[in-house]
């Protein structure tokens, strides 16, 4: 046996591919459909769920079965988890600063710094 490969069982890639395509259709259709929802919370929920939730499922499927992380040695999973954990830390530490530009402890600026609209945003979407 060649030292540089280690053979393993293959899942049915065609099946995975088709289910990925179905998920893709859901993730496109969901947010478009959501535009008709009046309730803001429902709208945001639907968009987040269909766009990012389904995206997460797609990514997990690709990682697990195309990149074979499901049968990979554990250390690989750990190193990827560490990278993602530190990214979450970065977001948690920076977001309070960058997101909040008119907090209680700052000089409140009555005019928003960022003035919109610069462009004609009433133009219809493509």
């Amino acid at each position: 046996m060649n030292k540089n490969t280690d053979e393993h069982k293959h899942p049915d890639y065609k099946k995975i591919y088709y289910s990925l395509l179905i998920l893709l259709v859901i993730s496109i259709w969901g947010p478009v459909f959501a535009l008709n929802i009046d309730n803001r919370t429902m709208l945001v929920g639907t968009v987040l769920l269909t766009a990012f939730g389904v995206g997460l499922i797609k990514a997990t499927m690709v990682v697990a079965w195309f990149m074979h992380l499901d049968i990979e040695v554990k250390v690989v999973r750990r190193l990827l988890a560490v990278c993602i954990a530190f990214l979450i830390l970065l977001f948690a530490g920076v977001a309070p600063e960058v997101l909040c530009f008119d907090g209680e402890n700052r000089d409140a600026d009555p005019d928003p710094i960022y003035e919109y609209p610069k462009k004609d945003i009433t133009k219809p979407a493509h």
Partner: peptide, 17 residues
């Protein structure tokens, strides 16, 4: 650039991270 919607603090955070 804060005058156009950016934030100089972001660089400071990315740099010191």
């Amino acid at each position: 650039d804060p005058t156009n919607g950016g934030d100089p603090l972001l660089w400071q955070h990315l740099f010191w991270f």
